[in-house]
């Protein structure tokens, strides 16, 4: 039972409550740094580190943090991890760090992270909070990567810097520019919602068939 529950918390972040596709949170890094797959993954990993770390601490200290000043406490904890992530990226991958620029410090203001602290980590035991943070961060990473991959393939004809279509590929300049981020995200959201709609419709059909089967 216990194991199932934490597994459930992990899974919900990846698909059903995906922070980007279902909750539409964290739009700022989502649109700003996804012009290549590498940037997207670096951003996703940094966010994952910060989210899991701060969820762990917040959940551990949830009974000590006074209710009145909880937001400032969350922010201090998040900022600590963001600083660690910032310097780690600077030391390990300076090139990516330079491209991500101001968006690494801005992880502090990522509403996805603060949202999880307020809505989940500060209310649930540590183990569940960490699983929830891991799931949410994975969902965020998947979303960032899918956006970054689409934008890099169309905008540069490459994935992870490897040319896919040869030299005469005509790059779609718009995909590297900000409008490309909005367009791609819009189209992905469209497909996500369409899929959910179809699934609900299918489940309704199944339920109706079962009910009429039971009646008849």
């Amino acid at each position: 039972m216990k194991k199932n529950e934490s597994y459930e918390e992990f899974l919900k972040g990846i698909w059903r409550d995906n922070p980007v596709f279902a909750q539409v949170l964290g739009m700022c890094p989502m649109l700003a740094v996804t012009n290549s797959a590498v940037n997207a993954i670096a951003m996703g990993m940094a966010t994952m580190f910060v989210l899991v770390g701060s969820s762990f601490l917040v959940s551990t200290f949830r009974n000590v943090i006074p209710k009145q000043v909880r937001i400032s406490c969350f922010i201090i904890i998040i900022a600590t991890f963001v600083t660690i992530a910032d310097y780690t990226l600077l030391a390990l991958v300076p090139g990516v760090h330079k491209e991500l620029g101001a968006f690494i410090p801005l992880i502090v203001a990522n509403c996805l992270i603060l949202g999880r602290q307020e809505a989940f980590a500060s209310r649930y035991p540590t183990k569940l909070a960490v699983m929830d943070a891991l799931g949410m961060a994975c969902g965020f990473l998947v979303a960032l990567f899918s956006l970054g991959a689409v934008r890099e393939i169309l905008g540069d004809g490459a994935l992870f810097g490897v040319k896919l279509f040869g030299d005469s590929f005509e790059p779609w300049v718009i995909m590297i520019l900000p409008p490309g981020g909005f367009l791609t995200l819009g189209v992905i959201l469209l497909f996500f919602n369409w899929f959910k709609y179809k699934k609900d419709e299918f489940l309704d059909d199944v339920a109706r068939a079962e009910r009429s089967g039971a009646d008849g």
Binding site: E170, W172, V173, I174, L177, P179
Partner: peptide, 10 residues
């Protein structure tokens, strides 16, 4: 507008 932003040279 989309085409102009996507393929500015062509």
């Amino acid at each position: 507008a989309f085409l102009l932003a996507t393929f500015p040279i062509a």
